[in-house]
Design a protein around this nucleic acid. Structure first.
Lengths: 177, 177
DNA sequence: TAAAATCCCATGCGATCCCATAGATGCCCG
DNA sequence: CGGGCATCTATGGGATCGCATGGGATTTTA
């Protein structure tokens, strides 16, 4: 596995520590991070959501690439640089796979005593569980509008609705060695 | 053959485990999954049905491809990412060909003590047996209407349209809570 | 030196692995 | 042609392992 997938919710303990889901740690390690080493994960406030974005080396390079695409000295680049680099924190992972979130980051995401980790492929987000619930709801509704896209992507391009039984007839001979 | 076909109904045991139909396991292996390895199957709530969609690498690639088409950092991409990646679970298959369904997924499909696996070609769905029964009934009626369109093809194909799921009724013995 | 951050160990629960059983199927050999 | 044996699948249960979490102990910083 080389992408962040799924959601997990972990607690913040009295010292402000949170366990990073084991599945995510695996991805981070593959991305160049060595647990116990001196590297860390990149974390910054999401630009358009009350959440935190985080990832490993690949994410960092992606940001670099994004900025490189904009002309030097443009307003756009300046703003983006500040918005991204300015608030980036490099968090280290302790021996037990936990990180400590600085107050500034916690505030932006409204984190109190638990964190929902949301895998988004090349990066992941950290949400206050309640807020993420709302966001997920909205996202699902919006996706309904893209159903046709999905339908074709998922293969049953013939029709929009999922009509499982309709493919039953296909003489079930298939699954042979 | 390398597609998911037919339907099977298996029980959920006290630990929340369900056997994946052997026929489906064969397809998954061909799709890149190695039993006993570290990969898994991708599973997420169906967008428009009280069921779960699942598949192997090929299905994951489709999702990736869908997102790859959207510009980075666009609202659209973010929403879609959350809905897709965020809801996806990577389930590992144990040595006996079983998976464990997380509570969140079970809830969406209303799964309690049994699961009906429905082959849909390159992916398959998991239904609560009762609900699937209703859905299949409606689907059949619909198919009747389309039969003339399908013509002779439907004739040979529908022959095997017997009731695979019913076999479990006979074989199953202690189908209790 | 006090406060805070980091490291290290203990623990409980859930997830995973492994083995045992049983029904069903298919094959071989009589 | 039929009986019995080997195999495979589904399912249950026990044992084990890993992860998340909590609580000190130790080091670092102001």
């Amino acid at each position: 596995m080389d992408r962040f997938v799924s959601t997990f919710t972990n607690k913040i303990d009295a010292k402000g520590r949170v366990s990073i889901p084991a599945a995510f740690r695996v991805v981070l390690e593959r991305d160049g991070y060595k647990v116990g080493g001196s590297a860390g994960i990149y974390c910054y406030p999401s630009l358009d959501a009350p959440a935190l974005d985080a990832g490993g080396e690949r994410l960092a390079q992606k940001i670099d690439g994004l900025l490189a695409g904009l002309p030097d000295y443009s307003d756009e680049r300046d703003e983006l640089s500040v918005a991204l680099y300015g608030d980036v924190q490099v968090l280290s992972i302790d021996g037990d796979g936990r990180i400590v979130l600085p107050e500034s980051l916690r505030a932006h995401a409204g984190l109190r005593d638990a964190v929902t980790f949301v895998g988004l492929g090349e990066k992941f987000q950290m949400w206050e569980p309640g807020r993420f619930g709302e966001r997920r709801q909205r996202a699902r509704e919006k996706v309904q509008g893209h159903r046709k896209l999905l339908g074709s992507a998922a293969g049953s391009g013939s029709r929009s609705g999922d009509d499982p039984a309709s493919s039953l007839g296909g003489g079930g001979q298939g699954a042979r060695e």
